[in-house]
Write a protein that binds this DNA or RNA. Structure first.
Length: 765
DNA sequence: ATAGGGTTAG
């Protein structure tokens, strides 16, 4: 024997020592050359190819085997199919292997179970479990770990068989298996499978057999009762599959760290938080210390419970054990700190990571956006692109709310373009975020267009659209969508009721609002929150039922905040009820003494009533307390550029032209019958001056700029950060009539559509 | 054979 042959022999005796494709090829060639190509040697080469994940080469050998494939050949090809994502092929070869009379061993089950899991075919997986038990493999460590993984994923397997038939594109370039067999309906297979392996029980030990039968009966319960698993509720399925998961775990004679991590993750992800945490403690009794997998399963629990203390404890443990550079733990930590509103700490963790993958980028982006740090979120998104990490569907649904809140339509549109090109536009999360973004940026029609194109609605997508209508004052559209949602069996939640109540309040629909408020508490058992109370109180105030609103707020089962009282105070201003306004202010100043808006509001109410002394007293009190009202500001986006108008600021390059246009506009408005409502302006100002002061309100400057800078017929969108005042509302109606185009004013995320001298929300503004 | 991120909110 020469040295080459010796080398070949050593390599063949230890196949896992072959580390490269070229080495494997050389070995293959040597064997063919020396005509030593016995089926067993070829199988060894096949297993080497399979180890190196070379599906094409593995199949070439497999299909040319002179005699029936050996166990090793079957195992190798099955594993290779699984790791290539060709799960159907993997399972079909598994069936063919059984059909050819070979008994599967403990090496093959992990691959087969992984295929079942990733194909979302739990029923097939359960049958394989039956097979495992009958073959006495129910005690193998790796097999049990794979089984537990399958059961822990039951929630993501719900749809069942969605990916059953693999993407045919994946088959390109790969030789077809010689015979796929009868695998067109994988649900028929288990029976055949059971028959084939029935014989094995005869040789089993009696004790073990009764044990096995007990297990088989337990696992097959669902099917023996003649029910499909769809009959069971989600809750029942949850306990059923979690039960299977735990049973496997309990039956295991030996458990390693992977077993513990799998059972912990399974419980943690299915809401059994306490059990998961208990198991982490129990793990210590088995002399196993939590590793990076354990920690990243446990951290999301503390993120959900907003338990900063426990989260920090885990962070400390991670640092002490050198896990703090792990991207998985890093992402969990970023998320945990962000959910505890500690975004600074999230950033610190992010910058400490030696490298960032898509998920850690997504975590930091979502962390910023969810905490209202929209500019920072956008900055990270940009940096992610620079780092050449391709944003995925999660990235887009995380960043979209930033555009919605900043009202940056041009950015939102750009992202929408990216989303369409990446084919993410049918994702429910993204579509809902897009609906919200377009609605918040004033394009309610585009929002509806996207909504109508969705194939699937969940509660959030309904709510986003309903809230969109509510904000735009389209109360009836909002209500009809809410009804449709209920008819289609989607249960509204806390936020959905906020949306429909906001819609009612916007349009002055008192009866409807009461109906929904009662339905929420009685039919859906949702405890009303501040937002629901605020919407109803706001509505009662708008329609002028001020005393009722006062009683309603006073009877709330939670302490009303300043914002609830200030909506009533605003209503008192509109309906000119000074007596109640003073009562409300008293309440307001007790809970929220720093509320500048309340002082201004009350002072305006005094002015309007001619009580100049009281108004002045308030202004002086404000000055003494060092409170200074921020000047009103409105902005308008024209050709991707944002123009801001701050009250009293004359620095806009077109200021003079705008003033000219305003003068002309005011004259036309007055000819149409507009009378400036100057009652709230300080009394010591000349009448002509008062007219001018009202005219130069920031939103009117912005609207005028829109009129002179956009082509006729364009909708003008103005974003404002202060409550629209009575005069502004009236004036905008006149302006819309004169210029004959739609004017949309956003005021505290509430939209007012002005057209032909009317406002979409009537007079219930 | 095991782990991390997402949409609606006066």
């Amino acid at each position: 024997m020469n040295t080459t042959q010796n080398l070949c022999k050593t390599l063949l005796q230890n196949p896992s020592s072959v580390k490269s494709k070229s080495q494997a090829k050389q070995l293959h060639a040597q064997i063919l050359r020396t005509s030593l190509s016995s089926p067993s040697l070829l199988s060894t080469i096949l297993s080497i190819y399979s180890n190196l994940n070379l599906l094409h080469d593995s199949l070439l050998i497999f299909n040319s085997l002179p005699s029936p494939p050996t166990i090793l050949a079957w195992k190798s090809i099955i594993r290779c199919y699984t790791s290539h994502g060709l799960f159907l092929h993997s399972l079909s070869f598994f069936i063919q292997m059984l059909a050819s009379g070979k008994y599967p061993d403990h090496n093959v089950f992990p691959s087969v179970l992984k295929s079942c899991t990733l194909m979302k075919d739990l029923r097939f997986g359960e049958s394989v479990h039956g097979c495992i038990i009958r073959l006495g493999m129910g005690f193998d460590l790796y097999t049990c770990n794979a089984l537990m993984n399958m059961y822990s994923k039951f929630w993501s397997l719900e749809e069942g068989g969605v990916q059953r038939f693999c993407d045919s594109k994946m088959l390109g370039g790969i030789p077809e298996p010689r015979e796929i067999g009868k695998c067109s309906n994988s649900h028929d297979l288990p029976c055949e499978l059971d028959e084939r392996i029935a014989g094995i029980d005869q040789n089993g030990d009696l004790n073990q057999m009764s044990n096995i039968l007990y297990q088989v009966n337990t696992y097959k319960k669902v099917f023996d009762e003649g029910k499909t698993s769809d009959v069971y509720s989600k809750k029942e399925k949850e306990s059923y599959y979690l039960g299977s998961l735990r049973k496997v775990f309990e039956m295991m004679p030996k458990r390693d760290i992977v077993s513990w991590n799998t059972v912990i993750a399974g419980n943690a992800q299915n809401g059994m938080h306490e059990d998961a945490l208990m198991m982490v403690r129990e793990m210590g009794n088995a002399d196993l210390r939590p590793d990076s997998f354990t920690l990243s399963s446990v951290l999301p629990i503390f993120a959900e419970y907003v338990n900063l203390l426990k989260g920090k404890e885990i962070h400390g443990y991670a640092i002490r054990n050198g896990y703090d550079a792990d991207v998985f733990i890093g992402s969990s930590l970023i998320d945990m700190y962000a959910k505890c509103t500690r975004v600074d700490d999230s950033c610190r963790v992010f910058y400490m990571l030696p490298q960032h993958d898509g998920i850690s980028w997504n975590s930091i982006i979502a962390g910023c956006v969810q905490n209202g740090m929209f500019d920072e979120g956008l900055k990270f998104f940009q940096q992610m692109l620079v780092a050449k990490i391709k944003p995925n569907h999660v990235s887009f649904s995380s960043i979209m709310p930033a555009c919605a809140h900043l009202t940056t339509l041009h950015l939102g549109k750009q992202l929408h373009g990216c989303i369409i090109r990446s084919r993410f536009d049918s994702n429910v999360f993204i579509a809902s975020a897009l609906v919200d973004m377009y609605a918040k940026c004033g394009n309610i029609r585009t929002a509806r267009w996207i909504f109508d194109k969705m194939e699937l609605y969940d509660m959030v997508s309904w709510t986003a659209m309903i809230m969109g209508y509510a904000l735009h004052g389209h109360a009836y559209d909002a209500i009809s969508l809410f009804k449709r949602m209920e008819v289609e069996g989607v249960k509204p939640n806390y936020v959905a009721f906020m949306a429909v109540l906001t819609a009612c309040s916007h349009a002055g629909l008192v009866d409807e609002a009461w109906k929904y408020f009662n339905s929420m508490t009685q039919d859906y058992r949702i405890i009303p929150g501040l937002e629901h109370y605020a919407a109803v109180a706001d509505l009662l105030g708008r329609v002028g039922r001020l005393e009722e609103a006062y009683e309603f707020i006073s009877d709330m089962h939670i302490e009303p905040t300043g914002s609830v009282w200030s909506t009533l105070l605003a209503a008192c201003r509109v309906h000119k009820n000074i007596e109640l306004a003073e009562k409300v202010s008293k309440k307001l100043f007790t809970v929220d003494p720093e509320n500048i808006g309340a002082y201004v509001l009350l002072s305006n109410i005094y002015s309007a009533a001619g009580r100049w002394k009281d108004a002045r007293k308030l202004r002086i009190a404000m000055r003494d307390k060092g409170m200074k009202k921020k000047p009103a500001c409105s902005w308008i986006e024209i050709k991707n550029k944002v123009h801001a108008f701050v009250a009293g600021d004359k620095s806009h390059p077109y200021y003079d032209r705008i003033n000219e246009a305003l003068k002309v506009l005011l004259e036309q408005m007055e000819r149409e019958g507009y009378v400036p409502d100057t009652t709230e302006v300080l009394h010591d100002v000349e009448e002509e001056q008062k007219r001018y002061l009202l005219c130069s309100h920031s939103e009117r400057l912005a609207i005028t700029f829109g009129i002179i800078s956009t082509p006729a017929g364009t909708t003008i969108r103005v974003t404002k950060n202060l409550r629209v005042c009575v005069d502004c509302h009236t004036a905008t109606k006149f302006i819309s009539k004169i210029v004959g185009r739609e004017i949309v004013v956003r005021d505290n995320s509430r939209f007012h559509h002005f057209k032909d001298g009317k406002c979409s929300c009537g007079d219930f503004w």
